[in-house]
Amino acid sequence: MQPQAFSRRGALALLATGALAWMAVTLAPSQAHAADDVTVVIRTIHAAPDGQGADPQLNDLGPKLTKAFQGYGAFTQIQSQRVNISAAEPFSIVLPDGTRFRLDYKGAEGDGALHRLGVGVGKRLDTDVRASNGSTFFQAGLPYKHNGQDGILIVAISLL
């Protein structure tokens, strides 16, 4: 039987397909490169032991707030700020009670999956935290009276 003729063009097309497949497998980037900064949302929340309900602005934090602060029933967002922090630009805000809250960016590890942050509360607290993208952690305990209601301040730090 006479074999089918396979044109040069067909052979080229087949070679190109194989080359593309090889490149896709070996050269596809596995993960993002290490980050130099991170975007965070910092929310200052008043938690009162008395009362019930949470500010609608805190709906996304509802389950975490309820579980972490079981002794508190009412949560009110006082302030919210979205910032991009980097090693070159440390960030700090003054809390309602006058305490300066500081957030320092110390780099990323794990190809940008985990960010290292320095958290400072005035001169009283200085901790090192590693947090993954999309996570939220809290600093809490400073006593504060909001709208005549006793309670504490909660600073919620959410990494985007």
Partner: peptide
């Protein structure tokens, strides 16, 4: 899944 690691407490107020 999210991860939070408290690596260290470098300085703390002795009154707290």
């Amino acid at each position: 899944k999210h991860y939070i690691y408290i690596d260290s407490v470098n300085k703390a107020d002795p009154q707290s």
